[in-house]
């Protein structure tokens, strides 16, 4: 018990990092998801094809694999390219490694963007076709109809699945400990390495995750209730 109390501040710092990367990744993921989701719905075949490829790849492969490709794989390729450039052009090497934080952020953002893209698409498609027709019949362009009529209604329906995605991502951040990023789980591992108190520390880690996910899901419930006006 004592060891848990002593290491608690360190664990909380890790939890802070976990929240930070989750929030950042979800924010970037929302932008990527909006673009991917709308591209999938777009009439342009090329746009919708690329969005589908993106979404399929990042939803269909493990986050862990995506992470090691970004952190280990891509720098390898870049270094090879750099090698040719250095030999051919005589410039000095400029690239060494992707910083851990950047790799984590890229991987988590791309991954959540794919899921959020599907949430956006489903949200938009769930809005009755008559809404678009009514907006168009009033002379709105499809862009205006999307922006003023469809998306505001769709956003409301996206809140519960977005909340789920946030919680799933928050838990998945534990995976980034594999490349040494010091979030909550990695901090726990390091403390266990020093104290050999595996049970107590990992249990404490679990409860901190639980506290974060539960308070967030309560927040989403509250948000959902507040926005429940009209439809």
């Amino acid at each position: 018990m004592e060891v848990v109390i002593n290491s608690f501040p360190v664990l909380l710092m890790g939890a802070g990092m976990t929240i930070l990367i989750t929030l950042l990744s979800i924010s970037i993921g929302c932008v990527l998801g909006l673009v991917a989701g709308l591209s999938r719905l777009s009439k342009s075949r090329i746009l919708s094809f690329f969005a589908t490829c993106y979404i399929d790849f990042f939803r269909g492969t493990p986050l862990l694999v995506q992470l090691v490709i970004i952190y280990f794989g891509i720098p390898d390729i870049l270094k090879d390219v750099q090698g040719y450039l250095v030999a051919a052009l005589g410039i000095s090497p400029f690239f060494k490694n992707i910083p851990v934080f950047a790799a984590v952020l890229i991987a988590l953002s791309l991954n959540s963007g794919a899921y959020i893209g599907e949430i956006f698409r489903a949200g938009v498609q769930s809005i009755n076709k008559g809404q678009m027709e009514a907006a168009r019949s009033l002379g709105m362009t499809s862009h205006q109809a999307m922006r003023f009529i469809i998306l505001p209604q769709a956003f409301k329906r996206m809140i519960p699945p977005l909340g789920n995605e946030f919680i799933a991502l928050l838990k998945d951040t534990a995976l980034v400990s594999i490349i040494g990023f010091e979030e909550l789980f990695r901090r726990g591992q390091l403390i266990v390495g020093a104290t050999y108190e595996a049970f107590a520390i990992y249990l404490a880690v679990a409860f901190i995750y639980l506290a974060m996910t539960l308070s967030f899901s309560r927040f989403v419930d509250y948000l959902e209730r507040r926005l429940r006006t009209g439809d």
């Binding site: 009755n128 008559g130 809404q131 027709e133 009514a134 907006a135 168009r136 019949s137 009033l138 002379g139 709105m140 362009t141 009529i149 505001p152 209604q153 409301k156 006006t229 009209g230 439809d231």
Partner: peptide, 21 residues
Amino acid sequence: INRMRQEVGMVFQQFNLFPNK
């Protein structure tokens, strides 16, 4: 066509009012 649709009002069987407004 958007310009022309302004000249043509339409009323639907299912009303299609915007529910959040």
